[in-house]
Design a protein around this nucleic acid. Sequence first.
DNA 1: TGAAATGTTGGGGCG
DNA 2: ACGCCCCAACATTTC
Length: 474
Amino acid sequence: MKSVLFWFRRDLRVADNAGLYHALESGGRVYCTFIFDRDILDKLPSRADRRVEFIWESLQEVHQQLVANGGGLIVRHASAKSEIPKLAAELGVNAVYTNEDYEPAAIARDRGVALELNKHSIGFEAFKDTVVFEKSEVLTLAGKPFSVFTPYKNAWLKKVSDADLKPFPSEQLLDRLAPVDSPAAMPSLASMGFETTNIKSILTCGMSGAAQLRDDFINRIADYKDARDFPAVKGVSYLSTHNRFGTISIRELATVAHAETVRRKNIGAETWLAELIWRDFYFQILWHSPHAAVSAYKPEYDQLAWQNDQELFAAWCEARTGYPIIDAAMRQLNQTGYMHNRLRMIVASFLTKDLLIDWRWGEKYFADNLNDFDLSANNGGWQWAASTGCDAQPYFRIFNPITQSERFDPKGKFIRRYIPELSNLPDKFIHAPWTLPPMDAQATNFVLGRDYPAPIVDHALQREKALAMYKAVR
DNA sequence: TGAAATGTTGGGGCG
DNA sequence: ACGCCCCAACATTTC
């Protein structure tokens, strides 16, 4: 009798899961597994990693739902590239099914797994599940991949139909799961060498957490366009980590956004749909241009003479640049593993164009600390900010951190949330505490350098240096 | 999904 | 009354 092993990776849900659906639909017995992949986990810089805990929490729900339907999740802590073939052989399955992962390292791993399986006449199939359109599904009229977002978005919107967004009702076929003999308990975080981070106090995990955030966001999606740029306001979806780990289906989210856009001309939904399309855009960019994972998308920018000052980088990481909007943003990242999108642009512009530090340093710091870290979007975003990427902002577009702060946090509400030592400063001066008049400093008992650092660089000066640095490579 | 420098305009103060 | 200057306020260009 035919049997299939379904391998969960970045699709931690049982509902509307393309690969799981195809496995269940294939007619045989279906086993399910998740591997805490040592090839990935052993390289993580911290043993207190919120992502590992998010995965662990989310897997509890997957496991429970599989058990409730007579199956179970086989969870192991091992090197996936050898463990998957080993498990497939143990179970005697005919094939391993999974959902496609488009990152260079994942592509290499999957190729190795497929080769090893094929040696034993076991099949390997990967399905599109993470994105609406993958690889070369959206191309220019000339048959080339897009490198500019707006025409890509137009082509995406023109191409998309109900069929592309149709769910794969895997949850309706769970009765076809193979029973797992006395499913062993999932390895604990501690047994894998990880500490508890209390992720649940920051983010609701799993399918239920995703559904809760989805419902909450849909109620305010009409305000998205106006509210999304203000970090002190609850304006964005907060679904990014769920999209990273697939605890909710991208088809489901795109369906809602698309329907609201088309039927109700909901400008908020339209704006948010564009963000989902950005996600597809960056996935296909990296798939077509894997060199961008390690170097500038536009090679001429690999010649930029970054100053790469270790002290300035440490100040940026540790939120002591003296620019409140930058430091508040970095504290948000350090304390919660999340940073508001507007702030990501501001701190990225500051790192590259004020501190003159290689965008890859910032990319790595985000990769290590963001709960929602996804290689393609993180790399795309950093290259956009550093002006080295496809459809990047022009090099001379340099954010003024004070102007951005005044515009997007006008009352300093976000700054005060993360930098309480500035809470008594008047709104007018909270964006640039070094401009606080002596009278106000006395009245609020605020001493620059004692209560909060003086700015580590002068924006006007650094801006000129950045312009010179970029001009030199043109 | 900017900001700064430069250019233009027009109202009001003033001789 | 008139011209001149100053300088916001807005527009354009430059990076």
